[in-house]
């Protein structure tokens, strides 16, 4: 028996699951949320940063993905800095950062998205709602996770500068929400695990998790994201995500 048709099936099924998960999020238009990011080291010492996040959904059928803006309120020395990301389906994202002390907007090289985000266990690339096209997929198995029937899907980053060789993603079969991701580094050893919890339904259609906990197995450090005050369809426009406007992000 050849395994090639089986592999093709698994890939097909993996892509179907990812596409369905993406579809479930169609039509959110835009959202805003507050984010508290808590960094913990091995000894349990913690530091919390406060950010505000705004996202604008990419137009259907366009090569452009979502646009997002993260505004820092703390740590204090970073207050007022802001990160703007344009995600694309098939090419690397564009990113700009505003540095308030120098009144300067700087573009970030696309290759450096694998680096840690402000000292946390999240990489830049872990942040945005990933476009389907950014990975190759493979359905692995069905598995019960925390009492929910889940699909386990492997996804391999297309970007050769991704920090990951592959990721294993647990999504529930009813709502296609991500509950867990195992991240494998370039050498294919388990690097980090993300656990997602406290999902809530907004506008009767969009699930958003309040808590995301990333554990780094290699360092023993962790980072927890707590989202609050989700708002949808708040009237954000393309121009609110322009590079020019970045200087005035508040």
């Amino acid at each position: 028996m050849s395994s090639a048709p089986l592999l093709a099936d698994a890939q097909q099924r993996g892509l179907q699951i990812a596409t369905e998960a993406d579809k479930r999020n169609d039509g959110f238009v835009d959202n805003r949320a507050n984010l508290a990011m808590t960094l913990r080291n091995k000894k349990g010492k913690s530091n919390t940063r406060l950010l505000r996040v705004r996202t604008l959904e990419g137009l259907k059928g366009s090569a452009n993905g979502d646009k997002s803006l993260m505004i820092f309120d703390s740590p204090r020395d970073q207050k007022g800095s802001a990160l703007l990301t344009y995600s694309y389906k098939t090419k690397p994202d564009d990113q700009w950062i505003y540095l308030p002390a120098a009144k300067r907007v700087k573009r970030i090289a696309s290759r450096n998205k694998s680096g840690p985000f402000v000292g946390s266990e999240f990489a830049y690339e872990d942040f945005n709602f990933p476009e389907v096209e950014k990975y190759g997929y493979k359905y692995l198995r069905d598995e019960e996770y925390l009492g929910r029937d889940c699909y386990v899907v492997e996804r391999d980053p297309v970007d050769k500068y991704s920090g990951y060789r592959r990721q294993h993603v647990w999504l529930d079969k009813t709502e296609y929400r991500i509950w867990k991701i195992d991240f494998y580094d370039r050498k294919n050893s388990l690097l980090k695990t993300l656990k997602v919890s406290d999902y809530e339904l907004y506008l009767g259609a969009f699930w958003r998790a309040s808590t995301q906990l990333m554990n780094n197995h290699q360092t023993g450090k962790s980072t927890e994201l707590r989202f609050t005050d989700f708002e949808f369809k708040t009237g954000l426009k393309e121009i609110d995500f322009s590079v020019n406007r970045l200087k005035r992000a508040r």
């Binding site: 090289a109 290759r111 450096n112 998205k113 694998s114 680096g115 840690p116 500068y161 920090g163 580094d185 370039r186 050498k187």
Partner: peptide, 14 residues
């Protein structure tokens, strides 16, 4: 030019 090597030698260092 500016050239950045992210995660130098598999560390967090840039």
């Amino acid at each position: 030019f500016e050239f950045t090597q992210s995660g130098l030698y598999d560390t967090r260092l840039d």
